Structure formats: C-alpha cells, structure tokens
Amino acid sequence: MVTLTRDVTVGTVLPPLTVEPISRTTLALFAGASGDHNPIHIDLDVAHAAGLDDVFAHGMLSMAYLARLLTCWVPQERIRSCQARFVAITPVHAVPTCTARVTAIDDGVVTLELAVTLADGTVTLTGDATVALD
C-alpha cells in the first residue's frame, strides 16, 4: 500500500479505513449532524414494524467514512468527484472497512474504485472517485 501520491500507479491500494462498530449512539449523533432523522435508523419499534430485527446505519454514514478515507490520503481540495451505490444495509454493531484502489491515471487525475465491506464480507457500498494528484 502506498500513501504518497508520487508513488501511485494503476493497482495502487490505499491503506484501508476500519471504523469502530456502528453503535446506536453513532446513529443518533449522525442523525443529528446530518438532519436525517428517518426513524428506521434510530427507532427499534419502527424497524420491527418494517419487519427488521434492528435499526441500520444511514447509507450516507458509509459515504462519510469513504470521504474520510480519501481525505486521510489527500487534501479535500484534490477530490474532484465521489459517487457511490448503496448495495446492502449496514446493521447496528457492524464494523465497516473502507477501501480504495487506483483503476486509472489520466493527466494527473486518478480514478479510484471504492467499497465499504463488513467483517463478514458483505459489501454495503460500491463507488468511484476521482482525485487530482497535485
């Protein structure tokens, strides 16, 4: 794994970001910070009424973790785009790991393949980003 942008080649893998287990407190704090108070993320009764065993994390929380992975690598102003597709839910108590791999380099801009994966191997989010090297 490489952390310096001058050493980047196609196939370079950024150091992964593994976050603490998603707690109910994390969900409540993210709801407040983001303004997303959808009760499916914080109210166990609502989750049960929807046929779920428990609440689950906001998809945008995983996006925020991916952004943190990128900004641990480069300054924020170098990020040109970041998009994702939510492919599975992140249950409460899950431990997400964010990863990024360089798939292309064109005129000083790298394209990265992004993913968030849980400890059991479930991929919850996929996406891509473009980042200026300088």
Rank of each mutant, 00 (worst) to 15 (best):
L17V: 15
T18C: 13
P21C: 11
I22T: 11
S23T: 12
S23W: 14
S23C: 14
L27P: 04
A31G: 09
S34T: 05
G35K: 05
G35C: 04
G35P: 01
P39V: 00
I40S: 00
I42L: 02
L44I: 01
V46S: 01
A47W: 00
H48M: 04
H48T: 08
A49D: 02
A50R: 02
A50Q: 05
S62G: 12
L66R: 13
L70E: 10
L70V: 09
T71C: 04
T71Y: 04
W73M: 09
W73S: 08
W73N: 11
V74G: 07
P75S: 12
E77D: 14
E77P: 10
I79Q: 07
R80S: 12
R80I: 08
S81M: 04
C82Y: 12
Q83M: 11
Q83P: 10
Q83T: 13
A84F: 11
V87M: 05
A88G: 09
I89V: 13
H93L: 05
A94L: 03
A94I: 01
V95L: 07
T99P: 08
A100T: 02
R101I: 06
T103D: 07
T103K: 04
A104C: 04
A104D: 08
I105M: 13
I105T: 12
I105F: 09
D107T: 14
D107Q: 14
V110D: 09
L114T: 04
